[in-house]
């Protein structure tokens, strides 16, 4: 046994170096970007010699930036509500049921998640025109909702597959009709999955650029605003905006991760 431990030690040290190097690779660019938001100069670049909070106070007193935040959050919340309802419904249909065309249905269900970003944006743009949806908030909400449905379906199906069938059967035996059995047994069991999927959809929508860009009207979402500002030149102001967005998404992401894990453990 000892020999074996010896044998794997070399690999282990090498691989742990690779892991920590990877951690650096994913964190360092973001840390640098955050630091640059505190630079006391309009010029983006290293080294940073003096520091300031002016860019942040600027962001929080900029009416356009603040309204863009609100706009993005509203889009994220509304599109998530649609995705969650539709996604859960599709998951209930697909999980553990055999019917003609189930495979095709499943394939088409995950399709929006597999279409490359630009093509998905173009297809939605053309279809919005066809349906008569004007570019703007409604169009973005619709596109985000459709794009995020597959993620809800996959998460909810995974949870649904672990629901003991006997519970539903017991409810039916006691006289519950299918709807009440769903509302009182299935739905409560799905809550952790639905919450986890909701957070994921919120972040996907809040972070989405390409669909918001092609379906948006005059009012930009946050990523579109940052993109527009970047095209006219880098400035620490953008760093401050990006940092606030980063903190928001990272905190929600980590909290959701812990929350769903705890809920999964409890049940």
């Amino acid at each position: 046994m000892n020999n074996r431990v010896e044998l794997f030690r070399g690999n282990r040290i090498f691989l742990s170096c690779v892991y920590w190097a990877f951690v650096l690779y994913v964190f360092v660019p973001l840390i640098l970007m955050v630091l640059m938001g505190f630079k006391d100069s309009k010029f983006i670049g290293f080294p940073i010699r003096s520091w300031t909070l002016d860019w942040y106070t600027g962001v929080f007193s900029d009416a356009q930036v603040l309204s863009t935040f609100g706009y993005s959050v509203a889009i994220a919340v509304l599109s998530t509500l649609i995705s969650v309802v539709v996604g859960t419904w599709i998951a209930v249909l697909l999980e553990g049921r055999k019917f003609v065309g189930r495979g095709v249905t499943f394939g088409l269900t995950v399709l929006p998640a597999l279409v490359p970003g630009i093509i998905s944006a173009i297809a939605f743009r053309i279809y919005a025109r066809y349906l008569g949806i004007e570019p703007g908030m409604g169009a973005i909400i619709w596109a985000h909702a459709v794009h995020n449905v597959p993620f809800v379906v996959l998460v909810v199906m995974a949870r649904l597959s672990t629901l003991p069938k006997s519970q539903i059967e017991a409810a039916r035996d006691l006289g519950a009709d299918p709807f009440i059995a769903f509302a009182r047994i299935t739905l409560p069991y799905l809550v952790p999955a639905i919450l986890g999927a909701s957070i994921f959809c919120l972040l996907l929508s809040f972070d989405d650029f390409v669909r918001s860009f092609f379906l948006g009207g005059y009012e930009p979402t946050l990523p579109v605003l940052i993109f527009a500002k970047l095209k006219s030149g880098m400035s620490p102001e953008i760093n401050a905006i990006a940092t606030v967005a980063l903190l928001l998404t990272a905190v929600i992401g980590v909290w959701a991760e812990r929350f769903t894990r705890r809920m999964n453990k409890e049940s």
Binding site: V26, F43, G45, F227, L230, M234, N239, V254
Partner: peptide
Amino acid sequence: LLIPFWVGEIVRTYAIMILLGNT
């Protein structure tokens, strides 16, 4: 490793711009 991936496409692209720029 998941934390940085919650951050959006544009923000992370910008982070790379700052990393690799001439300054």
